[in-house]
Simulated scan of single mutants.
Amino acid sequence: MSALLKDPLLKLRPLRESDIDAIMAVERRCYEHPWTPGIFRDSLKVGYHCWGYFLDEKLIGYAVMSVAAGEAHILNICTHPDQRGQGLARRLMMRVINRAREQEVDTVFLEVRSSNRIAQGLYESLGFNEIGMRRGYYPAGQGREDAILFAKVL
Rank of each mutant, 00 (worst) to 15 (best):
residue 137 Y to A: 02
residue 112 V to K: 07
residue 41 R to Q: 14
residue 33 H to Y: 15
residue 48 Y to A: 11
residue 102 E to D: 08
residue 5 L to K: 10
residue 2 S to T: 12
residue 59 L to A: 01
residue 133 M to F: 02
residue 96 V to I: 13
residue 121 G to F: 13
residue 138 Y to E: 05
residue 50 C to F: 15
residue 19 D to L: 03
residue 18 S to M: 00
residue 99 R to N: 07
residue 40 F to G: 04
residue 105 V to C: 11
residue 124 E to Y: 07
residue 7 D to Y: 14
residue 111 E to I: 12
residue 100 A to C: 06
residue 47 G to W: 12
residue 40 F to H: 06
residue 68 A to K: 02
residue 88 L to G: 04
residue 46 V to H: 07
residue 145 E to K: 06
residue 134 R to W: 00
residue 136 G to L: 08
residue 76 N to R: 11
residue 62 Y to R: 10
residue 85 G to P: 03
residue 51 W to D: 14
residue 144 R to L: 11
residue 67 V to D: 07
residue 87 G to C: 09
residue 43 S to H: 09
residue 111 E to Y: 06
residue 22 A to C: 01
residue 119 A to Q: 11
residue 71 E to A: 10
residue 152 K to V: 07
residue 67 V to S: 07
residue 146 D to P: 09
residue 15 L to W: 08
residue 61 G to Y: 08
residue 72 A to L: 01
residue 95 R to I: 04
residue 139 P to A: 02
residue 56 D to A: 02
residue 2 S to V: 11
residue 101 R to I: 06
residue 117 R to S: 14
residue 3 A to E: 15
residue 84 R to L: 01
residue 128 F to P: 14
residue 47 G to M: 10
residue 82 D to P: 02
residue 92 L to I: 02
residue 36 T to K: 01
residue 103 Q to G: 01
residue 109 F to H: 12
residue 53 Y to E: 10
residue 38 G to A: 14
residue 139 P to G: 10
residue 108 V to L: 09
residue 114 S to V: 13
residue 81 P to A: 08
residue 99 R to I: 13
residue 131 I to R: 07
residue 54 F to K: 05
residue 107 T to W: 10
residue 30 C to D: 10
residue 4 L to G: 02
residue 85 G to I: 01
residue 100 A to E: 04
residue 84 R to Q: 06
residue 70 G to C: 03
residue 132 G to I: 14
residue 1 M to D: 07
residue 12 L to A: 09
residue 135 R to C: 06
residue 23 I to H: 00
residue 47 G to S: 11
residue 54 F to E: 04
residue 135 R to L: 11
residue 119 A to C: 14
residue 100 A to V: 05
residue 51 W to E: 15
residue 70 G to F: 02
residue 57 E to L: 04
residue 22 A to Q: 03
residue 26 V to K: 14
residue 103 Q to A: 15
residue 55 L to V: 02
residue 145 E to W: 05
residue 53 Y to A: 15
residue 149 L to D: 03
residue 145 E to I: 05
residue 70 G to P: 00
residue 24 M to N: 05
residue 59 L to I: 03
residue 78 C to K: 08
residue 75 L to T: 12
residue 98 N to K: 05
